[in-house]
Amino acid sequence: MARNLTTPGGKILLLLDEKNTELTVTEIVEIMKKNTSATTITNWLRELEKLGLIEVREERTPVGTRKKLVGLTEKGKLAAEYLRRIIGVIQQ
């Protein structure tokens, strides 16, 4: 089955690119959660990971809990750059 980058997925890529750092899944949900459920956002993240555009890794906090960190892969950085170019052309 072919997978495609969706508009919400593109927004997540641009968000990660703009922040230029890893974000937790919770942070992404808080930023993106305008009329969108956390479950839907998590599904978008899974799809981006399947496409090889983001990497999700788990890290333990000092108090022993776990958090998931999301960052762009090289492929994801290239995709975000490409999206910014497209947006620039459209806005001209």
Rank of each mutant, 00 (worst) to 15 (best):
Y82F: 15
E47T: 05
R46F: 08
A2W: 02
G64L: 02
L78A: 08
G71T: 04
T26P: 00
T36E: 15
Q91A: 11
P8A: 11
K50N: 09
R60V: 13
E74C: 07
E18D: 15
K67G: 01
R57C: 13
R57T: 14
V29Q: 11
W44H: 07
Q92N: 04
E81A: 11
N4L: 15
I28C: 05
T21G: 09
E74A: 12
L13V: 08
G52P: 04
Q92E: 05
L48R: 02
E27M: 11
K19F: 13
T21F: 05
L45H: 00
K67M: 08
N20Q: 15
E58D: 10
I86M: 02
T39E: 14
T39C: 04
G52I: 04
R66I: 14
E49F: 00
T39G: 09
T73H: 03
I12K: 01
Q91C: 05
L51D: 00
R66S: 11
A2M: 13
S37H: 00
I41V: 12
T61F: 09
K67W: 02
L15E: 08
E47A: 12
T36Y: 14
K33D: 14
A38M: 05
T36S: 14
K75D: 14
K67T: 05
R46A: 14
T36A: 15
W44V: 11
V56C: 10
I86S: 04
T42N: 12
R84D: 04
G9K: 00
E22D: 12
I87K: 07
E49V: 03
A38G: 12
A79Q: 09
G52Y: 06
V29D: 07
L23Q: 00
R46Q: 14
E30I: 04
T36C: 11
L78C: 08
T65Y: 02
A80C: 01
K50S: 11
L53T: 02
N4M: 15
R84S: 03
K34E: 14
N35T: 10
V70Y: 04
Q92S: 11
L72Q: 00
L45T: 03
K77P: 00
Y82D: 05
E49R: 11
V25Y: 07
K11E: 10
L23S: 07
R60A: 15
K50A: 14
L83S: 01
L51E: 03
R85T: 02
A38V: 08
I90G: 03
T65G: 08
N35D: 15
E81N: 09
V29L: 12
T7N: 07
M32P: 04
V29C: 05
T61N: 11
D17W: 08
P8R: 07
I54M: 02
E58K: 12
K34Y: 09
N35G: 09
N35R: 15
Q92K: 05
K11G: 05
E22C: 08
T73S: 09
T6H: 06
V63W: 04
K33P: 02
K34L: 13
V89Q: 11
